[in-house]
């Protein structure tokens, strides 16, 4: 029986999807171009790379597995503090910091994933929000360890691999952040196109059916939640290492909310959506807050409302619609 169904199964379309396309290669030339074109804005560019990684982590959870979260900043913050504390306690090799942050955040993700599995979307939103807020309060109150509202200061990083020191202009920081983003993106792309990733998409589309196909739903969700948490932790660690400072802000509610906006702006359920959403959002943030720092939030809110009402699929949805209309591009 199994062999006959497998014989009828043609993996070719899936393999084609998994292959890198020309547009993707072109996309990854952009960071290099940006490095030369906007050499005086490298701090902003690093921020974009880091936020993109963070958005990617939420995309894995929300876009592919369909787990809604209002408290993803919890893992980002954990990673940030882990890297910061490791550095202040004399362990300031950057890559070790990333690894440490990933492990701690993954552990936290693994433990909390069991809470998130329970209940409806609303319960999930509340539980994730609650967990993030608890961490925020914890960081706020444990001033002796985290520095509380003043933030964690006195972080000094060694050169990466003993070779590349962080310089004043943020060149190393930018290249470092972009490379980490690229490697993790590549990995995420592998995950998404693996049977594991396909299973997740199946769960997202039809939760009730996947157990019947033999997919261990809970194990898959726990797995992706843990991976997503680790990604977010690494993003947090990158922020700490490139700015050499941890503000309590990393755990705050607006950070989780902004992240959701980024993802929705770019389009959920496609890895490039997370990246493009970040670029659009951060650039808009930079320009708008340059014009009018106080009321930037108003436009942020207005954008969110408009996106939800009219452009539910974000930039990627728009691109896909465009591609469908172009003659010859239809597949």
């Amino acid at each position: 029986m199994t062999t006959t169904t497998l014989a009828g199964f043609d993996p070719a379309p899936l393999q084609r999807q998994a292959r890198w396309q020309h547009a993707e290669y072109a996309f990854w030339l952009l960071p290099a171009a940006a490095y030369f074109a906007f050499g005086d804005q490298l701090a902003l560019l690093s921020q974009i790379a880091i936020t993109a990684l963070f958005a990617l982590s939420l995309d894995l959870i929300l876009g592919y597995a369909g787990i809604v979260s209002l408290g993803h900043a919890a893992f980002f913050g954990m990673g940030a503090y882990t890297a910061g504390l490791m550095a202040t306690h004399g362990w300031n090799e950057p890559l070790a910091g990333l690894a440490g942050a990933a492990v701690i955040a993954a552990l936290a993700g693994f433990v909390t994933s069991f809470l998130v599995l329970r209940g409806s979307d609303l319960t999930r939103l509340m539980v994730t929000l609650g967990v993030a807020l608890m961490l925020f309060e914890l960081a706020n109150k444990l001033t002796s360890i985290t520095g509380g509202v003043d933030g964690l200061q006195g972080i000094e990083m060694k050169p990466i691999l003993g070779q590349f020191a962080f310089d004043l202009y943020g060149k190393t920081a930018f290249i470092y952040a972009t490379l980490v983003l690229f490697v993790l993106f590549w990995l995420a792309r592998r995950i998404v196109h693996s049977p594991f990733g396909l299973g997740l998409r199946g769960i997202h589309l039809n939760m009730a059916r996947m157990p019947a196909l033999g997919t261990p739903v809970n194990a898959r969700l726990v797995g992706i939640y843990t991976v997503g948490a680790a990604y977010a932790g690494i993003a947090g660690a990158l922020l700490t290492q490139t700015t050499q400072f941890v503000s309590i802000d990393v755990l705050s509610f607006p950070r989780s909310a902004e992240l959701l906006l980024i993802l929705v702006l770019g389009g959920t359920g496609s890895l490039y959506g997370a990246l493009i959403g970040t670029v659009v959002f951060m650039t808009a943030h930079h320009l708008l807050s340059g014009i009018n720092p106080q009321y930037w939030q108003f436009w942020l809110g207005a954008l969110l409302v408009l996106v939800v009402l009219f452009a539910r699929d974000g930039v990627m949805g728009g691109l896909r619609a465009l591609a469908r209309r172009l003659p010859g591009a239809a597949k």
């Binding site: 909310a257 959701l260 906006l261 929705v264 106080q294 009321y295 930037w296 939030q297 108003f298 942020l300 809110g301 207005a302 954008l303 969110l304 409302v305 996106v307 939800v308 009402l309």
Partner: peptide, 12 residues
């Protein structure tokens, strides 16, 4: 998302 948008607007 929609209501978070409203919150941000109301704050401003």
């Amino acid at each position: 998302l929609f209501s978070i948008g409203l919150v941000f607007m109301s704050i401003s």
